[in-house]
């Protein structure tokens, strides 16, 4: 593998977004790019990430390879890169190590690091194609604020999407709270719009602890999309120029 990324910051943000959810995971490298799928220890949340091969220049791969990485180790090495550095990932066919090279734009500094790889036996879940009943896109900063605010009052949030809008509500020991967003279109700054596509009303309850964790991906994209259907996991997606980070969260269900 040899994959060169114009901005090291992209990989730094991706790893920052997922490192608190999963510790060890495989970066699966194939013709479509570098992909990752991993569940948290409790099997409540799952992250699925793709950095498309088009996002790298060049992207050279002789044969598919899985790079078993400890994300804490990778974070330490990525801290040694500036966001604007050019990052090159290199690995052999049956690698023991992953090599990371950081070059500044002026081309007068080259930093070379290696991290040890591990064998990770990871089960990949089959995620069914789902026609979601509701898809809500909103500013990622707004979603982050809502999750943090409501998490002060409660462990859980109810998300209700209807024609009127989307309502996030919670109640806890000290009281209760809710935030309702209505659809609106910001012509000048589309990334600040809230869009609600709905085929039927949805009401689901989720643990805020995980949602707050997902929001660490807000640096990747100014827009987040929530896809919901009754009684199925929530999909939270942050789209990047050439790839995505998706989180799935199992709902809380009444007995």
């Amino acid at each position: 593998l040899e994959a060169r990324l114009e901005q090291a910051g992209v990989l730094k943000k991706v790893v920052d977004a997922i490192k608190d959810l999963v510790q060890d995971c495989n970066f699966d490298c194939n013709d479509s790019g570098i992909a990752l799928q991993a569940m948290d220890n409790s099997h409540v949340a799952l992250v699925s990430m793709l950095l498309k091969s088009e996002g790298f220049s060049p992207y050279r791969l002789d044969r598919n390879v899985a790079l078993g990485v400890n994300l804490t180790s990778l974070t330490k090495v990525l801290r040694c890169a500036q966001n604007e550095d050019i990052l090159t990932l290199k690995a052999e066919d049956a690698p023991d190590t992953l090599s990371l090279v950081f070059e500044n734009a002026e081309n007068d500094r080259i930093s070379e690091y290696e991290i040890k790889l591990m064998d990770i036996d990871q089960e990949h879940l089959g995620i069914p194609e789902t026609e979601y009943a509701a898809a809500i896109s909103m500013p990622s900063a707004e979603f982050q604020r809502i999750c943090r605010d409501l998490n002060q009052l409660s462990e859980s949030v109810a998300i209700e999407a209807s024609k009127e809008g989307v309502k996030f509500s919670c109640s806890g020991d000290i009281g209760s709270g809710s935030v309702t967003l209505r659809q609106h279109n910001n012509v000048d700054r589309p990334e600040l719009s809230t869009k609600i596509e709905l085929t039927e009303p949805v009401a689901l309850t989720f643990s805020l602890k995980y949602l707050v964790n997902f929001c660490k991906a807000s640096a990747l994209s100014s827009v987040v999309t929530l896809s919901l259907s009754n009684e199925v996991p929530l999909l939270v997606e942050y789209a990047m120029g050439s790839g995505f980070v998706r989180f799935y969260l199992a709902p809380k269900i009444g007995e």
Partner: peptide
């Protein structure tokens, strides 16, 4: 009272 489900209930292992 609602209880937390896990993803295995919705997604299949290969």
């Amino acid at each position: 009272v609602k209880s937390q489900t896990t993803l295995g209930r919705f997604f299949s292992l290969p």
